[in-house]
Nucleic acid binder design. Structure first.
Lengths: 209, 209, 209, 209
DNA sequence: GATGAATGAGCCTTCATTCAT
DNA sequence: TATGAATGAAGGCTCATTCAT
């Protein structure tokens, strides 16, 4: 006779860890990084501080898990969307859309991880490589093909990354934001920015007759 | 004992406060917000924890002073540059240039203040208004005059602010960055982005034969 | 290591709290209110400052517990003694005797609580009502029945309370005092004081011929 | 031309000390013993912490001065009133009246001194002798002359002292108290208490038929 | 797996005291 | 005399971590 309670008690190791990761995200998002003590997080997860340290040998390790799970799910999410090749402009659109949509779906997780990475000295992201590097290569390929205009791809990549990285806090502060509108506007903004300059022909001045 | 250091001893109250503000910026920039204890900051300023609390009645007040001095100097810096009116495009250029140049000149101060505002619950910036509001109005005036294209000025303003706010950490991480190049590229990027769409001439419609 | 002290280790939460309450009483009685630091109290209880704050969330809460336990035991002690009704004189005798005897049995606890109530701004006693009120009513009932003389029951009650409240420090300073003698003398003193004035007969004026 | 300011600046040493003593009394009475820091007291006296320690070499010395001035003025006040001899009953009346009246006139000073003596380990009162001793001798002389009844003079003296010592806090808590009524009632209370037992006349024995 | 108890380090803050001016 | 500046000790409290059960 396996009671429901026994099912609850036999929670697998993984489930408990996920509870704690979710609790850490929740506490950091709600009360701030500074207020996120192990005691507080464990209580949020419905367990004890001692047990939390049974599943994660240190607080830093729990925070590392928060970051790692985010990058794993994020990478999986975007990998399938970015796989399909296309023109650089299409790939830039897909990159922005998938990034922003993933962030809107995981705003608390993203925001908490950003706080952790900002404040922790030991938590590291696996991809040590500059987060803007893939984007820079994408922009360069667009310039090589003549589809994009002339600009410093490094700096442009950084500006695009800034807009993306800001999104989590934007959505956390304004939960009622129209996500689709925000995404399409941001995509359009940067697509305009990377377009080649219009030929300085008569038609250019024609817009202000 | 230290009677020879009369110069050091005659330090006025203001000088000591400035020392402590500078030390707080330095420690936060160098060792991180979490490592910035009063003891550490006071040592960095060449004084004692007790004396630091003699000049600032609490740690929060010291942090508030870090934020306030930044906004005061920042407002003074940009006020004279933004005073001169001009076309919206010129004003956007000036806004971006003065913001970014001020940040490059005060990267540590800006970065430390951002960390403080993120982590402190009590430190407040005087201008409660949304930091993106003046920018949004600037963009709207450009649209009204027909100089700028059609886009959501709120979202565009947020993206521009994101690029600006990111700059401090960028310069802190990469002190060897070519500041002028970075500024001119960023300005050009967003000026392109707000331009009106080119007239749907033959070359433009060529993409859909 | 300490696995042999299973008795000590199995101490329940309540036992540890009682240890700390007893230690607080001991330290305050012995070294004074000002010297009673949490560190000192915890050492006296055989534990650490951190653990003391694990059992009581603040020093004030520990002090509140010192006061509360005193009033609980005191109320229980006197309730059964005062239950039995009787003439006002008998009830006054019982009130004084039970109060004073309880104090002699708990002099350190009473004295420490008085110091706490004098010095703490937050510790409160449950019975907000004036401590002299029940005594005042007792005196009034004696006057109504004619058993007591004419006097201001409020002021008399205050004087009796003063004698009672002083007792704890008296016994702490003079541990060798004859308790029973002290109690019976104090009872007799105040019983005389509340007696009706003797009839102004010849015999009364005879003492001053 | 001696301006008023110069008069203020040339305050004599004694005047400054008295200011500080008065400020200490005020702060202790108003904010409590625990809140009475040197900084707070000096500010109340209109001077600086450093200057306070110029006039009193330590905080304890200031507190000692608070106690000493009280006992000097108190002794002077009562000496002239107690000088005139009389019957023990008259002297007891005078003792109580002068004590209580002095306390009502100096309630804050008396209360502050009591707090200081309770909390300080070093402040001492000059008359180390038991404060109740003169009273005990007074009571004994009344018993020797047959004017007072049979009771333990030591314990009675302590009860009377308790009523007196409580008076300061009573008046501080209830500033609207009718002082003269309080004094006359208290005097009458203890005069009754020390009277000889009434002769076992018929009316007295009537209570035990 | 899980918990309560316990510890020790570190932090902010208060405060008496010292000292140069 | 008087003050501002500075120091160091001490206190209450938080918290990550350890451990016995």
């Amino acid at each position: 006779m396996r009671s429901r309670e026994s099912a609850a008690l036999s929670r697998t190791r993984r489930a408990r860890r996920e509870d704690l990761i979710a609790a850490a995200i929740q506490v950091i998002s709600q009360d701030g990084y500074g207020a996120a003590s192990l005691e507080r997080i464990a209580r949020e997860a419905g367990t004890s501080k001692g047990n939390a340290l049974y599943h994660f040998s240190s607080k830093e390790e729990l925070y590392q898990a928060v970051a790692t799970t985010l990058f794993e799910t994020g990478a999986a999410y975007m990998a399938e969307r970015l796989r399909a090749a296309g023109t650089p402009a299409e790939r830039l659109r897909t990159y922005l859309e998938s990034n922003l949509r993933f962030i809107t779906l995981n705003a608390a997780h993203v925001g908490a991880t950003q706080r952790i990475l900002q404040n922790s000295t030991t938590v590291q992201v696996i991809e040590v490589e500059d987060a803007a590097a893939p984007l820079r290569r994408l922009l360069q390929s667009g310039q090589d093909s003549g589809e994009f205009g002339a600009f410093d791809p490094e700096i442009t990549a950084l500006s695009i990354r800034a807009a993306i990285d800001m999104a989590a806090f934007l959505f956390l502060r304004h939960p009622d934001l129209d996500v689709e509108h925000y995404i399409s506007e941001t995509v359009a903004l940067f697509l305009r920015a990377v377009q080649p300059a219009p030929a300085p022909s008569a038609s250019a001045s024609a817009s202000a007759p």
